[in-house]
Structure formats: C-alpha cells, structure tokens
Computed example of a mutant assay.
Amino acid sequence: MRERRWESRGKLTFREVLALGDRLALLGLNPATAKKEIISYIEEWTVPFVHDFSRLDPWTTEDVTLVHIAEKWHGDFFLLTGGYHTVYLNHQATGTYCSVSHPWKIRRELATHYPGGMFWVGFRQAHAFVRVRLHTIEVVPPGETREDARRALWLEERRHAFAEAIEVLNLPIESREEHDRLVLSTPERNVPFFCSWPDTFGPCQFEYNSSDVFEFLVPSGRLAATWADEPVTVRAYLTGFSQSALEEFHAVLPGARQAYRCSAHCSLEEIPDVLAAVAPSGRLYATLCEFQSLTLLPNAEEAWGIVGIVGEQGRFQIEVRLNRAPLPEDELPEWLETLLGVPVVYAPLSPFP
C-alpha cells in the first residue's frame, strides 16, 4: 500500500535515537527498548564478492537477495533476460527466485503520473511472471481525499497508462471502474493474477503469471524498447541460490555492481553493530515504534504510523510513515516535529527499488 513518509532533516547519533525512544514512551507510546529483538532491513549493501555476506553471520538473516545493478546499461533486454533465465534453469529449486527490471515509457503526456514506469520479468519454480508498476507524481494513500477533485483525471490516466503496457505485452487484462477506483482483472481464470501497491484510486502495479517460462521474454523486450535508445539502469534480483550459483549468474552481466538486501534479527542496541557490518554502502531500516494516531490526536482522522530508524554510513535519521494523513496537510510537519523533537522534511521513498 502507498504511504506517506517524512524523515529528519539532520543526522543523529545512536544515543539520540535511544533518547527519542524515551521521549515517545513519555508520550504514552510503546517504543522498542534497548534489549528488545527487532528486525532490521538492509539494502544497497554493495559487496565485491558474494561471500562477503558472512559479515552478517553473527545475526539470523532472512530473505537474502543479491541484486546486480548495471547503470547506464545499453543492450538487448531479450538477450539479457534470456541469459539470466538460462542460468536459472540450471539452479531452479523450491524457494529460488530470479527477476530482471527495466524502465518503460508511457507515450502519452500525463498530469498525475510520471512518464517512466518500471517492469520486472521473473522466474520462480516452474512459473514466469511479468510485473508492471506506475509512478505517481503525488502519493495519495487509500482513504485520503485531497485529490478527489481530480479523481476522474487520475482514473482516466491510470487506465490509459496500464493499457499501453497491456497492449505491448499482449496480455488478456481488462480494466473497469468500481466505486470510483480502477479495477484490473483477467478472464483467464486459471492464471495467477495479482494487483498491488494501491493508492486511493486503485492499484499501481499488476503481476501476470504463466506456466510457460518463455512466454514473457519477447514481449518484455518490446516493452523495454519503449525507452528507445537511452541508457538505463537495469537490476537483477537473485534469491535462494548458493554462492556458486551466484558466481555463475554474475557472468551474465559482467561489471554489474553487486548489492545485498536482507533482513537481520538483532536487539535494538545492536543496530550500530549491524550497520558497521554492512558499511560503508549498506542502508538499514528498523522500526522503533508503531502507533495509532488517535492515541496522540483523539480528535483527528484515524491513521496508523511507524517511527523508524534509518542508518547509513554510521549515522542515523528518523523516519515516520503514515498509512494516511491524520491532519490537514499544512498541520502535519509541525505535529511531526513536535512528536519527534527534530525538524522533518517530506521524503517519499523511490517507487522503484
């Protein structure tokens, strides 16, 4: 689900992060204590060798994914995905996952969505899938009404944007409006089809699956071609493979930067140690406190929020994520700064990690 996000303007020490936890406790919230086990999410941890992941051996890790990142890439996307698929077939097993992402471009000029979207072609077990995501100019989570005056425009533009991708991929996907929201569906009842990443106007992403593992190789090349000849950043995501298999995958895109993402179980007080283990490039996210807005604002709209820790290069920031705004837009920054005791800036996350 789309969400609103703010972060502290300046950097904090970890001692200041712990002091914020004390501040939130005094306000009646229930933040994590120093000894409490939490889950930290790590991303963009660039490593020269796949075995460098052993630096996280002191902690239990899950959802380990190695990402190949090639910036300013210019090539044949059909051949690239085919190369990853060939290696995948040699190592596929239950729990393995491989996908490759590439941007695509919407031809029509839009007012509510950016012209650049992203898609993924992937393989897991005996299935292939294609996933298409749009990038909205504003984040308007479910339940927010501040863009209701332009709802008809949002719906028409989203329907058109998805229609362009559906046409290029030649997928049996239909769209309609229900209760002032866009709905996507397929008449193919035996095909796994998922819509996700919703805002107040409907899904911003769909995923279409096929038992034919070759089905999307050629169509995805056509969708990649909508970006014309501009260099792009492509990423390949590899989950569940042995280190020897990961070495074999690296030959598909030689020169690509390798970066891990995963989750690690640790106590709150161990976060600086985890961050040091993935230094200097790794970024860490962890939840300090979850809360319901009515606890703090009994007369406001109901919303659920998270106060989180963001760690990078040995320093920390605080983030707040809300599933919707509990107050009018002009009142939100002041309320959040009063809550946290530090200046904040609106900072939505990139839609294309």
Score class of each variant (00 low, 15 high):
residue 226 T to S: 08
residue 255 G to L: 03
residue 147 E to D: 14
residue 288 L to E: 08
residue 283 R to H: 13
residue 289 C to Q: 09
residue 311 G to C: 13
residue 329 E to Y: 15
residue 157 E to T: 02
residue 298 P to T: 05
residue 124 R to Y: 10
residue 118 M to K: 01
residue 124 R to C: 08
residue 46 T to S: 13
residue 259 A to P: 02
residue 9 R to L: 12
residue 27 L to E: 12
residue 89 L to D: 05
residue 337 E to N: 08
residue 143 G to Q: 14
residue 180 D to M: 04
residue 148 D to T: 03
residue 84 Y to C: 01
residue 91 H to L: 01
residue 162 F to Q: 04
residue 76 D to W: 00
residue 81 T to V: 12
residue 154 W to I: 11
residue 28 G to C: 10
residue 244 S to A: 12
residue 14 F to L: 08
residue 211 S to P: 07
residue 171 L to Y: 05
residue 68 H to A: 01
residue 53 F to P: 07
residue 181 R to N: 06
residue 5 R to N: 08
residue 272 P to K: 08
residue 316 F to R: 03
residue 334 E to I: 10
residue 327 L to Q: 03
residue 135 H to D: 08
residue 6 W to L: 07
residue 221 G to I: 01
residue 88 Y to G: 00
residue 164 E to G: 08
residue 242 S to L: 09
residue 15 R to W: 10
residue 62 E to H: 13
residue 176 R to P: 04
residue 231 P to L: 00
residue 44 E to K: 10
residue 295 T to K: 09
residue 152 A to R: 13
residue 333 P to G: 01
residue 185 S to F: 14
residue 327 L to K: 03
residue 106 I to M: 06
residue 22 D to H: 04
residue 248 E to Y: 01
residue 35 K to S: 15
residue 306 I to E: 14
residue 189 R to T: 06
residue 192 P to I: 02
residue 96 T to Q: 06
residue 240 G to T: 14
residue 223 L to A: 06
residue 91 H to E: 02
residue 176 R to M: 04
residue 181 R to P: 05
residue 26 L to K: 14
residue 247 E to I: 02
residue 294 L to C: 06
residue 277 A to W: 06
residue 176 R to Q: 04
residue 303 A to L: 13
residue 99 S to Q: 04
residue 135 H to F: 05
residue 4 R to D: 09
residue 166 I to E: 01
residue 174 E to Q: 12
residue 237 Y to T: 00
residue 143 G to C: 14
residue 91 H to C: 00
residue 181 R to D: 12
residue 329 E to G: 12
residue 353 P to S: 01
residue 258 Q to L: 13
residue 118 M to D: 01
residue 163 A to F: 01
residue 182 L to Y: 13
residue 279 A to C: 10
